[in-house]
């Protein structure tokens, strides 16, 4: 236990506002927090669905929770049920074998619902495209508010995408 506590103290707080450049991202964080406070009373619940990704995008979604990005400190949390979710984060091209499951997940969410499509695959179908096995981009299957390109998008790009979805919702 002593070692464990010592390690916590030694490492200190790693959470950073800006991963690379300073002010631009700090702004982003403040805005993000404000948007979340305004729209979602300080708490945004996200449900992630892998609709057929290569698992690369999931790796970056995982990284959002590491101490550097510390997404929970922004009031954003990942929830286990679509019924608890404000926003659906969808990765991958939509495999035809996942089409029904994705639609059902979307239907199970309470309105108003936001959808962010993640990665080149989510945006366009990516390298997998459309075929007998793939419906292509997420927007071919459910309504998408924001699409975040990248293969996979970095955690910062993901945060920006989430912010954009919330602010778009605030406007409209």
């Amino acid at each position: 236990m002593y070692q464990l506590l010592k390690q916590i103290v030694r490492v200190g707080i790693k959470t950073e506002a800006p991963p690379q450049s300073d002010e631009g991202l700090r702004l982003l964080n403040q805005r993000l927090q404000q948007e979340i406070l305004g729209m979602f009373a300080g708490s945004l619940a996200i449900r992630h669905v892998d609709a057929g990704s290569c698992n690369g995008c999931e790796l970056e979604i995982h990284m959002l929770s590491n101490p550097y990005y510390n997404i929970e400190a922004l009031g954003i949390k990942f929830v286990a049920s679509p019924r608890h979710a404000d926003l659906l984060l969808v990765t991958g091209p939509v495999a035809r074998n996942m089409e029904v499951a994705l639609k059902r997940t979307y239907d199970a969410m309470p309105a108003p619902k936001l959808v962010v499509a993640v990665g080149d695959c989510g945006c366009t179908g990516g390298i997998f495209g459309e075929s007998y096995a793939s419906c292509g981009r997420v927007a071919n299957v459910i309504a998408v508010d924001v699409a975040v390109p990248g293969c996979p998008p970095t955690p910062v790009a993901l945060l920006q995408g989430i912010l954009t979805a919330i602010s778009a919702d605030a406007k409209g």
Partner: peptide
Amino acid sequence: YTHKGVDKRFQGMALAEGVRLAGR
């Protein structure tokens, strides 16, 4: 569930390009 037709997708790709799909 995540079957995306990768074998089919490979067919006809340029040999030099295939590495990008393999990497995914």
